[in-house]
Deep mutational scan, measured.
Amino acid sequence: MEVRTIKVFTTVDNINLHTQVVDMSMTYGQQFGPTYLDGADVTKIKPHNSHEGKTFYVLPNDDTLRVEAFEYYHTTDPSFLGRYMSALNHTKKWKYPQVNGLTSIKWADNNCYLATALLTLQQIELKFNPPALQDAYYRARAGEAANFCALILAYCNKTVGELGDVRETMSYLFQHANLDSCKRVLNVVCKTCGQQQTTLKGVEAVMYMGTLSYEQFKKGVQIPCTCGKQATKYLVQQESPFVMMSAPPAQYELKHGTFTCASEYTGNYQCGHYKHITSKETLYCIDGALLTKSSEYKGPITDVFYKENSYTTTIK
């Protein structure tokens, strides 16, 4: 009895394709271990004539594949690729409408935090270190965002349907971005203890939790000093293409032309909904596939993004 075979390709990165001759009487799992086709788990399936010449994702289970996976995804987590594939199996079914010149995501599976993050990423200057993220990001900007969303979920250790947080998501993504040249110098002034300067680099240099107003941050924000008295913390120097200011959701007025974009969060910790506000020729609110415009805006804002380049204080 002759062994019926077909020729397929296996890959971990969709760049390096490895030619395989597979036995049609055995499952993919018996031949390769966990195997995925377009995100779908085909591990328990036997090869079919229609699979001839198709590319299958496999887990990096030998040295060659491990090197290829690390170079593309910059992670050695053995569960990463499987999590990416199972997320992709959902995100490829989502709709990605162009809204006001940006790629958004039609609401499904509690994905409003991903839509808000995706919209924000198209408006701030950011370059990702893992080629996987950078490639998928370019495709997302062009309207094909399924891979990018699935990668975000995998890097953030999230599953489809789980509630997510924009600030946490951005923080994970910033860790995989090139923020080497970003720098922030802060000064804390206390009447009792004097003053202390701190220099922050990388992710810490672009994120701040405690106030939404970048102007206020430049002037000074009140913080408790270690001595128990009130101290003032203010920005001395900022070198970065953008800054992200966050605070627990509270009524906040966004003035046209003073910011790049913002995240609105309605609801409580267990259950809520994100919308995205962007400042173009007027203010726009993007909620999944829905767009509304207004000249002014007041609502429960939790993150505001500002364009920056270089700032030095005039406070002496």
Rank of each mutant, 00 (worst) to 15 (best):
Q251I: 15
Q30I: 09
V58Q: 13
Y28L: 06
V12Y: 12
T198E: 15
S295V: 08
N49H: 11
A87D: 00
T55S: 13
N89S: 14
S79E: 15
A69C: 12
K229M: 14
Y234D: 08
K229A: 14
S104F: 07
K93Y: 11
V3I: 13
Y57Q: 06
V67K: 14
V203R: 13
Y252N: 01
F217L: 15
S294N: 11
C271M: 13
L186N: 05
L88K: 05
I223L: 10
N61S: 14
E281D: 15
K46L: 14
A140F: 05
T35S: 12
Y214H: 05
R83H: 06
T258N: 11
K316M: 15
A136V: 02
S25Y: 05
T302C: 09
L119V: 02
S263W: 09
L81S: 03
C271H: 15
E2T: 12
G39A: 14
L290A: 13
T116H: 02
G53K: 12
K95S: 15
I223E: 13
S171K: 13
A205V: 05
L291C: 15
F32E: 00
E162A: 08
T258V: 05
P248E: 08
P249I: 02
V12A: 09
G288K: 05
Y234P: 01
S104G: 12
G194H: 05
K229H: 12
D41T: 11
N187F: 03
R4T: 15
K219I: 09
Q20V: 12
Y72S: 10
N268W: 04
S79Q: 11
K316L: 15
N61H: 11
L37T: 09
Q238R: 02
T278K: 05
Y214N: 03
L121T: 08
A136Q: 10
G288Q: 01
L179Q: 00
K219F: 04
S310D: 12
K280I: 08
L88E: 01
G288C: 02
Y73P: 07
M207I: 04
A108K: 08
Q197H: 06
F70H: 09
I6Q: 05
T232Y: 09
Y297D: 01
S246V: 06
K7W: 11
I223Q: 12
S213K: 07
F70M: 14
L186T: 14
Y269S: 13
F32W: 11
E296Q: 13
S50H: 10
N100V: 13
E253V: 12
K316T: 10
K92L: 13
N61F: 09
A132T: 03
G39R: 05
D165W: 08
Y269I: 11
Y274P: 01
M85S: 01
E2C: 13
K44Q: 15
A150S: 06
D62M: 08
S86P: 06
L254G: 07
G288P: 03
E253N: 10
